[in-house]
Design a binder for these strands. Structure first.
Lengths: 332, 332
DNA sequence: GATATATATGTAAAGGATTACATTCAAATA
DNA sequence: TATTTGAATGTAATCCTTTACATATATATC
């Protein structure tokens, strides 16, 4: 079907080695022969066979991404798709392909990685939904596989990450609530081991401390970030705890909170995190913290490519943006 | 790193051919040698190198999916992610990998396909967002590349598709409005060439005709399915046209319509299409038509696999489901 | 028991590139 | 002009499988 390098070489009157050089190391070839070979390549529409190339050179031009398949992640997906766009477009521009698969639930999170690695299919990975002590990190380092994570663990000097400055995002959100003269802020966090949540809690605490407010541990609650659990948490808290505003670690949790408030006919400012599309359309529209998803996708792909080229790029922390909407503004 | 087939063969005391048979055609090997070879394979954790395999056998175990990158599609993504889950999990279970990339805007829609095909990287494709006279269909048929489409064109006997029964979905929606004693239904359609829209319009017309209602072409309007355009359409229609309910071709368009109604302080039943997550959370919660996305993903992957195995599977039409919510129920 | 047939296994080519090493050729130096 | 040096090109091995074909072994038939 497609002509092989041998055919191109024959027609151009050179060896296959020279054709290969024209493609991969043009500087090692005379201007004159380069021209001639390129002409034949173009004329015949020759494109190197990726399988042959990958087999011989061990460079596969493939990057893997294994997507968490829990429901929460899916709701979050609209923003995620911008991330995906950033990743795939950047990778494609450097000749890499993106292989995706879904995380299998109920198995060791390393299985999918193991699978792709042992098949010799992948140059590197982009890791999503990082957790403290994530076993994938050690596994990939042990197998000398290149990777970049989205998010970072506490011990983060042994790998390259792209992370939202979650702490700063939470700090902005908390400051915003403080500026509305709310000081008893219920913080609905997520799972304890979730790296994002840890940093967000940090930002929340920092803002409070900065304003000289004494931390009340009663006001910090863990959840699974779901709407339902958040509803229940707020419903219970309304009886048991004294609070005047809510900062939730995800938009869905914030929505659950708003529903609980509405149900019990209470009103107070609520902030979420992520800026999923629902937030804009919810009534009241939800104040939230937005991540530059596409940029993060781009960045992570960039860093990975540089790692694959043997560089040691520095990790990146990107800024969060507070999006103010009715759910807090109506308390101005 | 990973042991090669030669090493396994040596240790098991057989030829590489036999090892290969154990893996690919176990029925051609004695029970006894199969056992022995399998034991060595397991012991050393041998996994065939996909690049070598793909090169030699021309079976690449890769399926490509090129994702529309327009904003509308991204909002729709949460459901799309279920589709993706269906696709990747089904493909993975048969040993296929999923390569994704983003459609480049402003270029021939065939470019990305061309690229992957010429690199000899892909066994087949799943095509999204089909249009009437979609140039990709002819292109792929011409190059004898296997593919399955989501959606179908008018002329659909030359390829295999999975499609929602859009006509039936629209029929259900229209019937529902009729049951609320609304007969002057404004139909906000999408782009004229969009296959979905064509079928949805068909269902709308069928329901009306069945009830003996004379079609008023004034009531059928094309749009880009966006919230804004839909808002404007309804705003204008309120002055110029006589209608008592709205059926929009997408949830975002329905939301635009609801906002326009609210803005002009009018009330009437509105139905959307797709059941994006926003619909459930919008006020009023939106009546809409749901597609079984995960099932469609599964089905399309199934059909593609069967095509790759040389079968000629029949296309599939799946049922739509009407999800009744406040946006119509409050007019009961 | 000899022959024909079927089954299991082995040998080696092929798939299409990259690349270490060898060779050729031209320019630079003495 | 003879010699050295460096750049351009070619030769052939290599990456790791699969598979057509050849051979060996077991089974069935007469």
């Amino acid at each position: 079907m497609n002509p092989s390098i041998a055919k191109i070489a024959e027609i151009a009157g050179v060896s296959t080695a020279t054709v290969s050089r024209v493609i991969n190391n043009p500087e090692k070839v005379t201007e004159k022969t380069r021209r001639r070979v390129m002409q034949v390549i173009n004329e015949f529409g020759y494109v190197p066979n990726e399988f042959a190339r990958g087999l011989r050179s061990q460079k596969k031009n493939m990057v893997g991404m294994i997507i968490p398949s829990n429901k929460a992640y899916f709701l979050y997906f609209p923003s995620f798709s911008y991330f995906l766009k950033g990743v795939t477009e950047t990778l494609a521009s450097e000749g890499y392909y993106t292989i995706i698969s879904m995380e299998e639930s109920g198995v060791d999170p390393r299985t999918s990685y193991k699978n792709l690695i042992s098949k010799n299919l992948i140059d590197g990975f982009i890791l999503l939904e990082l957790r403290e002590n994530d076993p994938r990190i050690e596994y990939l380092i042990d197998h000398s596989i290149n990777f970049v994570t989205i998010g970072r663990t506490k011990k983060n000097d042994s790998y390259t990450y792209v992370d939202l400055d979650n702490s700063q995002g939470a700090y902005l959100a908390t400051k915003h609530l403080l500026s509305l003269n709310r000081s008893k802020i219920l913080f609905i966090s997520g799972e304890k081991k979730d790296c994002c949540c840890i940093h967000r809690q940090e930002g929340y605490l920092r803002a409070l401390e900065e304003s000289g407010i004494i931390i009340d541990n009663e006001l910090i609650v863990n959840s699974d970030s779901s709407e339902d659990m958040s509803f229940n948490i707020v419903a219970r808290a309304l009886n048991q705890t004294d609070f005047d505003s809510i900062f939730a670690v995800s938009d869905m949790a914030a929505i659950g909170a708003l529903k609980a408030l509405e149900f019990f006919d209470k009103k107070m400012p609520v902030i979420g995190f992520d800026d999923i599309p629902i937030s804009r359309y919810f009534k009241p529209p939800l104040t939230t913290v937005r991540q530059p998803m596409q940029e993060m996708g781009k960045l992570s792909a960039d860093l990975l490519i540089r790692k694959l080229n043997g560089e040691k790029p520095k990790s990146e922390l990107v800024d969060a943006e507070l999006i103010k909407r009715e759910s807090t503004l109506r308390f101005l």
